[in-house]
Design a binder for these strands. Sequence first.
RNA 1: GGCUAUGUAGCUCAGUUGGUUAGAGCACAGCAUUCAUAAUGCUGGAGUCGCUGGUUCAAGUCCAGCCAUAGCCA
Length: 684
Amino acid sequence: MSEPRKILVTSALPYANGPIHLGHMLEHIQTDIWVRFQNSMGNMCTYVCADDTHGTAVMLRAEKEGKTPEDHIKAMQEEHVRDFRGFLIDHHNYYSTHSEENRYFAELIYTRLKTNGHISTRTIRQLFDPEKEIFLADRFVKGTCPKCGSEDQYGDACEVCSATYEPNELVNPKSVYTGATPVEKESEHYFFTLPEFQGMLREWTRSGTLQDSVANKLAEWLDAELQEWDVSRDAPYFGFEIPDAPGKYFYVWLDAPIGYMASFKNLCDRRDDLEFDEYWKKDSKAELYHFIGKDIINFHALFWPAMLDSADFRKPDGVFAHGYITVNGEKMSKSRGTFIMAKTYLEHLNPEYLRYYYAAKLGAGVEDIDLSLTDFAQRVNSDLVGKVINIASRCAGFIKKGGGSLSDNVAEPEMLAAFQQAGIDIAGAYERREFSKAIREIMALADRANEYIQSKAPWVMSKEEGREQEVQDVCSMGIHLFRLIAIYLGPVLPAMSDKVKAFLNVDSLNFTDRETVLTGHAINKFKPLLTRIEMTQIDDLIEASKEDAAAEAKPGPKAAEKKKAESKQDKPEEGSQEIEFGDFAKVDLRVARVIEADHVEGADKLLKLKLDVGNGETRQVFSGIKSHYQPEDLTGKNVVLVYNLKPRKMRFGVSEGMVLAAGGGDELWVMEADSAVKPGTKIS
RNA sequence: GGCUAUGUAGCUCAGUUGGUUAGAGCACAGCAUUCAUAAUGCUGGAGUCGCUGGUUCAAGUCCAGCCAUAGCCA
């Protein structure tokens, strides 16, 4: 056997601003399976992670909760650790970016960058909240889009027309903290001179470190011009102050990946068999891999290797991006109850179900993974309970009757050899992170094992005199096959693996054990290894998730500086929050009569309506109902208009109000008022 | 708008460098079996491989355009 590989693996650091949900779990389950597989193969694979604790969002969250940031991140970390443990994620260390080790490495790396001339400074003008005395990141300013006139848009891009711009270009900008009108203020910022690494990055991104599609994607930037990266933020900021730069702090994304080093260093200090330099020095022979979500590729495949390069550390051998989780084919949604927290899941279902299902669907690519809940239940039940566990379950009784020990004979040596041989392909699939392929092959083995037992029908033989040994041989063979399948599933199902060890009376079920055969070996009584999923459990989980979402009061601005890390999946979707009567009373609803309705040139979804709103006044309203209504269907109808909605400039003209409709998606009905009602009548 | 992906049976997905009648699991139907957590085995129906063109003796696979979906644009 070749020399064991020394491998260091990380999952992206969860942000200390919210709970772990099933999206996070995809990444940690993927990483954990890979790490367990490596160790099962006899390699020395270390897995570290940490909470990402810095930044404005954490600072404000703590402030809102009336805590210090330190107290807040400590509580968060405890929660995160508990959730990961619940899902059997075996981080060898789970640390924090708010640690002395991380401060040390952040300062060290920064100092080296600076010494190498890779830090430049220049003064930038930025919006500033004069009430709260804080600089405003793009997402903390809202106003009217300068391109299309849409209201209430973030400072970096318009969600309506997709224009991108600078926050100071917004019309009528407001701070999301205080509502104050921001002022422009100058500040000196520190920049990392990324363009100097263009050549290195071009080569590095194409050297097998990244998935092809990711490398293609990055080529967009690398073939164009890279920009310098702003790595400083002004006080007040929760983070590390930049050496020799009072009032300036490292941007959270500078010290976040350094957290991988800090966590590993912290572990090395407690372990005799791990040495930091062996893994991080420039010419390290150890392997380093980062598992991340596809949303944070830039940070890990551009900024991070460039920083490491300048600071004279080794670069990663691989950055592996995965896609997002959808539930029942759609984005996780709070109101639908599919925004599922790790904690809530664990209160209803066994973590290994999810580990198995994710594994069964994960490939090496960046495609999104759909958690289809009915498929989930069916697949887990039929694969794990119906096929795999059934093999042991149907053989164990006969073995017990025969004395409790496996036969000295191997009934089907060729079949056994084929099962052992299959381990090579399966290992290859795990290694390449093609877990779904590994699972397919394992399930094919389980099918073959069941076919074998079926064809031999030991229950028939057991009724015939003198065939006792044959029964033992066949059922022992079944157990041998089961054991191999359990070995192959071990990285995915560690808790079940432990139960199988107890059943088979063995100490280990590693890939390296697959050549041995338990002939003549005494085994223990079979106990159920896993129970089936009931659909009611899933229904309960969805219900509980809806309650979670409702309980989570969401006043105040959504802290969003870490939007890249938290991204869409964390975006609150309004459920049905209670409102005061006063809130409702603000909406002026009136009956309006459609005078004209027309198609809009160039618009896929819109119809242009001319409405009589009483007192001789008419309004022009654009309504996204083209897919369900023809203009002639609407003319002459009385509809419900939001009379006091702010006019909104759209590409095709100004829309002065909004027509109410029920439904959405496949079904949509415009709300109509009785034809007897006069246009302009108020609705209350 | 530009870019990166995805689109194959009711559902979830495989389909290697283009090569015979396009596969699996689940679900469904029938039969067998009853050792097993009603698990298992056998048989079967089911697909215009998003659409339209093109290259080729041959296209799910290559090329172009279009449509839909998702994401990215620091």
